[in-house]
Design a protein around this nucleic acid. Structure first.
Ligand SMILES: [Mn+2]
Ligand SMILES: [Mn+2]
Ligand SMILES: [Zn+2]
Ligand SMILES: [Zn+2]
Lengths: 157, 157
DNA sequence: ATGGTAATGAGAAGGGTTCGCATTGTATTT
DNA sequence: AAATACAATGCGAACCCTTCTCATTACCAT
C-alpha cells in the first residue's frame, strides 16, 4: 500500500500511525500531531495547555478540547501516564513502561524522576497489612533544586 | 471577665477560642464553628464542601467562601493539613502533629493512614542524591479495601 | 459603649476541564 | 477511485472547585 508522498496533512512521521492503530485508535491527524509533540518536545512532562501551545507554535490547528480528549484517550490506551502535580491540573508524559516517581522543585518547577525498589516494596507490604488490594500509588517529593538553592544564597539570606 | 450564659452565637465551646488566639487568629464565630466541625465530625478528612454541608445541617449560617478562606488560614496557622486526593479537590484534616501518609479505596473512598520510617528515610536519601533540599512530600497508595473486595466477589465475577 | 480594623457573606469571576452538536475526516466497502 | 458509515474534531457553552470583590458586620482594645 502506497500513500501519496508529501501529500498535504501527511507532515508527521508514518510510524506513529501504527502505534495508534495498535492501541486501538484511529490514526487521525490531531492524534498524530499530539503524539509527535509528546515525543519531540524538550519537556518530558506536559500539561494539556503545554501541548496546545506547542501545537499553536508549530502552526498546527487543533482545538484545546481535542487535546484534552486525545490525552485522556492516550491514557486509557496506555500510551501516556497522567500525573497530578501540585496545583491540581494534570500533567502527561509518554509511558515508556518503566514506572518511576517524581521529585520536583517548588521554585522553578523542575522535575526529576527516580525509582526506589525499597519504597516500592514497603508500599506493597503496607497495602497488604491494611487489607487493601493495591492498584496504584503516587509519590511526589517536593523541595528546592540545586540551582534554586544557589539563587537563594545569591540574593542575600 | 464574664460572658452572658447562653448568649446567642456562643454555642460553641470556649476552649477553642484560645487555640485560635494562640494561632494568631481572631476568635470569630465562623472560625469557631468550623474548628468545631473538624473536631467533632466522624470524618477525619473533609473537603470544604463537606465542612460547609455539616455547617448547614446544624443550622449554622456560614458562607462557602468563608469556609474556604478559613480552612486556608487554618492551614497557614498549622492547625490543619491540606491534602490533594485523587480528583483534584482539596481535603483537610486537623493537624495533630504526627506526620502520616494515606492509603485510600478507589471504590468507596475510605481513607486509612500509615507511617513508615523506612520510606521516610529513603525519601530523604533520594532528595539528597538529587541535590534537592526537601521541603515536603506526598504519598498516596490507591487500592480496593477489604469490604469492597468482598462486595466484588459477591456480585459474581 | 465606641471606634478602628479585620472578617464575613453573597455573588461574580477565574482556571482547568468536559460537554453538546454541527461539521469533517478516516477506514472500509463498493 | 468513489461512495458510505460512523468516529473524531472544533467551537463555544457549561461545569466544578476555588478565589476575588466589596458592601456590611463583628471582634476586641479602648
Ligand atoms: Mn515522569
Ligand atoms: Mn490523615
Ligand atoms: Zn528549582
Ligand atoms: Zn472500599
Amino acid at each position: 500500500m502506497i500513500t501519496q508522498a508529501g501529500a498535504p496533512g501527511t507532515a508527521t512521521g508514518a510510524m506513529e500511525s501504527q502505534d495508534l492503530k495498535k492501541a486501538g485508535l484511529k490514526a487521525t491527524l490531531p492524534r498524530l500531531k499530539i503524539l509527535n509533540i509528546l515525543e519531540k518536545s524538550r519537556l518530558r512532562h506536559m500539561s494539556a495547555e503545554d501541548v496546545y501551545k506547542a501545537l499553536m507554535e508549530t502552526g498546527e490547528d487543533v482545538g484545546l478540547a481535542t487535546v484534552y480528549r486525545v490525552l485522556t484517550q492516550f491514557e486509557s490506551a496506555g500510551l501516556v501516564r497522567r500525573h497530578h502535580f501540585e496545583g491540581g491540573h494534570s500533567v502527561f508524559e509518554l509511558d515508556h513502561g518503566k514506572h518511576h516517581d517524581h521529585i520536583l522543585c517548588i521554585k522553578c518547577g523542575r522535575v526529576d524522576e527516580f525509582m526506589d525498589e525499597t519504597i516500592e516494596e514497603r508500599q506493597r507490604v503496607i497495602a497488604r497489612k491494611a487489607g487493601y488490594d493495591m492498584t496504584d500509588h503516587s509519590l511526589y517529593i517536593y523541595g528546592i533544586c540545586t540551582d534554586c538553592q544557589k539563587k537563594e544564597k545569591g540574593r542575600g539570606r
